[in-house]
Design a binder for these strands. Sequence first.
DNA 1: CATCTTAGTTGGTGTCACGTACGAATATAG
DNA 2: CTATATTCGTACGTGACACCAACTAAGATG
Lengths: 156, 156
Amino acid sequence: MAPLQPSPPTRPKTKLSNIDALAQASFLIQGTLERHASERGFSLIQTRLLGVLRDRQPTINELAQLLELDKSSVSGLVERAERRGLVQRTRSTLDRRSVLVAITDEGLTLVNEVAKRFEADVAALLKPLAASERATLIRLLGSVLVAHAAERGVDF
Amino acid sequence: MAPLQPSPPTRPKTKLSNIDALAQASFLIQGTLERHASERGFSLIQTRLLGVLRDRQPTINELAQLLELDKSSVSGLVERAERRGLVQRTRSTLDRRSVLVAITDEGLTLVNEVAKRFEADVAALLKPLAASERATLIRLLGSVLVAHAAERGVDF
DNA sequence: CATCTTAGTTGGTGTCACGTACGAATATAG
DNA sequence: CTATATTCGTACGTGACACCAACTAAGATG
């Protein structure tokens, strides 16, 4: 199990494999988003919830699908968000079992602020790239996302 | 606060802004990684821990920096990983206060399996791109990561 | 020595995720 | 139209995680 070096890196990593690049990039993006969210006092998943609700009024079940969570998880998530006044629950009139979740003005304001800061940070991250490179990066990511969404059916 | 539509999307999103593309892509990658991890019975953060330990034997404090967590969080993280036999703690002989964390053979095997599956999924995700596009995407992400790492000093 | 300071753990709190079990509403069968 | 399923959301219990504050042990500094 390798000798017990004091603490400095055993092998200073030199090369970035494809997967590592993607994984690291995703951690970087998520970290950025999470930082801004926690500065506003809420979590990444709460931010994601609010983000989804910006253009939808889904039921708990639909939210569970969108966020890939168990419905009981979403129930608690929405409960906490509602307690903070960020979302609002309404009983559906069509199917009185289901609940429609809508973002409140306060929640919308908050999520938009986070989005704004996040956007600024992303812009800073992409600064080392030339404008054409940035466009290419976004285009390629877009292709991947579209292809994946098409394959999985669901929204986006 | 918008009329109470039954449940279908109020506004079917049509366009992907830059930030949305990056955010969505990062969620996609993270979700993929987390799926494989949880199939093996451990969490994303545990996977990240093991990933970091593949080529390092850091102290708790160094881990806290690498993972951007509080040292008490890392303490618990390592404790749980050790209880599962994935990681081993050793008191440093140089500074008897500090603890060196090393991955075990079992942990290494596990994390390599997850990495393998993850790599396969990423390859599938990138399939819609031409080979040259894939290379470009990785290169651009690499540039961003390198520039960011340089700015922040730390590892990668 | 008597202090800082640093490394890590412990304890308390809150979020989050899951599975299970439940009541209410709806759908389906006979 | 009752009787039985199915579906929707919630409640409860459990465990992982994250933070902060307080603490012990060990090292550094005067």
